[in-house]
Design a protein around this nucleic acid. Structure first.
Length: 324
DNA sequence: TAACTACCTTTAGC
DNA sequence: AGCTAAAGGTAGT
């Protein structure tokens, strides 16, 4: 049994510029959950081979980090977490810019959502799972994947936690079609084949080294490289560029953003039923022209504001009638 | 070239 | 209770 090492500390990130609820549970990552421990709210989850418990305070975020010693990680947990939450990014300043550029942005800026800096492989697999899917099911699929192929870190608050598997761990001695079959059996549906084939491709392209190249490439070139993989279209490619390749100008257009754009930004699209590639480009470029180099982060704020789970509770029909 | 539709599976909403 | 539609889309037609 591997030894588990525990570390604790704080990172400098004021609650005012970091809403952990929306940042961690808003569909960027699928491995965080809320720990409703009294008296303080905590969030726990796995990222970067480490199991974290985070407690937001007014002036900083307190963390506990647990890592199994047989899992390789950087041991400077403070810098690890700071990088993950992009603590150096001045969100306050950018939000002011976004509001200046877009009058309508104001009503969405209530809560400060941070753009996580995630690991490419995890990001790619999660978002290949995201097509025609919802956050709840994606989370359970990823949890299964980690427990089946990752390394156990330990038992925390009644749940076993696992690292996200590496490319090698996912492939093992398995052929591409074997992995496909295993994922099929685990209810990944038609995404199973996409994932198995893409992993084979990624291995051929150089694995982690390839991801490093994509980080250094201009955004549009990284995007074009990604859509060559089976199961990755422009939407998922943009998610990957934005969330794990540091291309913060990428603006993924999903069904939520499409509907939001129809209602609030590009009314002439109101009659359109589906997001064609032409419409995709139009909406994406609209937000890029509005917000520039950090347009993708601005989009993430809009996306979170639009999620049903973060909507203020609708008043009941009975309450509406009483008002009338 | 651009727009339509099948696709795995789950579940919220009738 | 049983059905439909929609869920962070993509690839093939």
């Amino acid at each position: 049994m591997a030894k588990v090492v525990k570390n604790s500390g704080t990172i400098c990130l004021r609650a005012e510029v970091c809403d952990l609820e929306r940042t961690l549970l808003g569909g960027q990552s699928f491995r965080w959950r809320k720990l409703c421990s009294e008296p303080k709210v905590k969030y726990c989850g796995v990222a970067l081979n480490t199991y974290w418990e985070l407690t937001p305070e007014a002036e900083h975020i307190a963390y506990e980090a647990h890592v199994a010693t047989n899992n390789p990680t950087n041991t400077n947990f403070t810098s690890l977490l700071s990088d993950y939450l992009r603590a150096d990014f001045d969100l306050e300043k950018q939000q002011k810019n976004w509001m200046l550029a877009d009058e309508k942005f104001k009503k969405f800026v209530g809560q400060p959502v941070r753009m996580l800096s995630q690991e490419p492989l995890e990001n790619i697999i999660c978002f290949m799972c995201s097509q025609n899917n919802n956050i709840k099911r994606i989370s359970s699929m990823i949890q299964w994947l980690c427990s089946a192929y990752g390394n156990k870190i330990g038992l925390f608050n009644g749940q076993e936690e696992f690292t996200f598997p590496t490319l090698k761990e996912l492939q093992g001695e398995r052929s591409c079609s074997q992995l496909d079959a295993e994922l099929r059996a685990a209810k990944f549906g038609y995404r199973a084949k996409f994932i198995a084939r893409s992993l084979t491709e990624i291995e051929k392209l150089g694995g982690l080294d390839w991801f490093e190249q994509l980080r250094r490439l201009p955004y549009m070139e990284a995007r074009e490289a990604l859509v060559q993989l089976p199961g990755i279209g422009y939407k998922v490619a943009d998610c990957i560029c934005l969330m794990s390749l540091n291309h913060l100008q990428a603006v993924p257009i999903d069904t939520h953003i499409f509907k939001l754009a129809q209602r609030h930004y590009l009314p002439h699209l109101a009659s359109q039923k589906t997001v064609t590639s032409k419409i995709y480009d139009e909406i994406s470029q609209h937000f890029q022209q509005l917000h520039g180099q950090y347009a993708g982060w601005a989009q993430a704020v809009l996306f979170c504001a639009d999620l049903p789970q973060f909507q203020p509770k609708l008043e009941s029909n009975a309450a509406k009638k009483r008002k009338k």
